[in-house]
Design a binder for these strands. Structure first.
Length: 287
DNA sequence: AAGAGGCCCTGATAGC
DNA sequence: TGCTATCAGGGCCTCT
């Protein structure tokens, strides 16, 4: 599911619902996520008050009053659900990003607050939770990550320097979290379409103007996606207003064989597997 | 040492 | 109550 925009929407939702709340109970139904849930996980969370909920790249960072906390990564299929206690003392499902219905299977972790609880669901279990004891430990986790597209550090000079003499194609560069953090397979294709650059182009062959476009469009596409509440690929039956809609704005992703959306372009969208991931592009206007 | 590919896992869908 | 193959929003690890 989640690239930077989707994770940001989850962060915003969590902030509204659980900031300043105290964790009353932690239930682990399945420890075997991408990495095994640490044995001290429950103790680490219990009775802690949530001070802030940040995001870096595709990671949600939950910090307690004492600067300890934990990180959530949603992997490919992780979703967070919210349940309220009603007047009859029964938990009722509540709308939440991308997940209006609580699935029956794969609810691995429950974190309870007063009158509210969040449930982590993840069929493929590529996501994970990781605790940290202080800011230093947290920073260490992200030490080798590249800047986010919105960061000052992600500038023309930085991009030129990193792409120089590199054989690797530009699509893979955008997916490389050591180069830039937060872009995934959907937005990589979209950003390259906006930039009129073919995903297979070798990084070393991009000129200064190409890099400028990538810089500009990375920010543009991700910001538009956040504004639209992220992208929802899966079709849920009981759709409500909380579901992201940026998939309606896809120019190339999952538009194989459809006509290029560019007004003066007569090309069609092609799909090509690059490093085992699908890439979508117009082979006419993306040079 | 940069870059490619396998792999972790379940579910939805298409094609037979 | 079919079966099988393919693909899916990520990223760590290994091999060359």
């Amino acid at each position: 599911m989640p690239e930077l925009p989707e994770v940001e929407i989850v962060r915003q939702s969590l902030e509204k619902k659980v900031r300043d709340k105290i964790i009353q109970k932690v239930l682990i139904k399945n420890r075997n996520l991408r990495f095994k849930i640490q044995s001290n996980f429950q103790k680490h969370l219990l009775k802690k008050r949530i001070k802030k909920i940040d995001r870096f790249s595709k990671y949600i960072i939950i910090t307690f009053e004492d600067s300890s906390g934990f990180i959530i990564h949603l992997g490919m299929s992780g979703t967070i659900h919210l349940l309220h206690i009603n007047k009859k003392n029964i938990y009722t499902n509540s709308s939440f990003y991308n997940s209006p219905i609580l699935p029956k299977k794969h609810n691995h972790i429950e974190i309870e607050f007063e009158k509210i609880k969040i449930i982590y669901n993840d069929p493929r279990r590529f996501g994970y939770f990781l605790t940290f004891n202080n800011k230093l430990e947290l920073n260490k986790k992200f030490l080798h990550f590249g800047p986010e597209p919105f960061s000052e550090a992600f500038n023309l000079k930085y991009i030129l320097k990193h792409l120089k003499n590199k054989e690797k194609n530009i699509k893979n560069f955008l997916l490389d979290q050591k180069f830039v953090s937060g872009i995934g397979n959907i937005y990589a294709s979209e950003i390259l379409f906006y930039s009129k650059i073919n995903p297979s182009r070798k990084a070393k062959n991009l000129n200064k103007n190409d890099c400028k476009k990538i810089l500009f469009n990375s920010k543009l596409v991700l910001k538009m996606a956040i504004k639209k509440g992220g992208s929802t690929i899966q079709n849920f039956q009981n759709v409500n207003g909380k579901i992201g809609s940026f998939q309606k704005n896809f120019k190339v992703y999952q538009r194989e064989n459809l006509k290029c959306i560019e007004p003066k372009c007569s090309g069609f969208i092609k799909k090509k597997i690059i490093s085992n991931r699908s890439s979508f592009f117009c082979n006419y206007c993306q040079k």
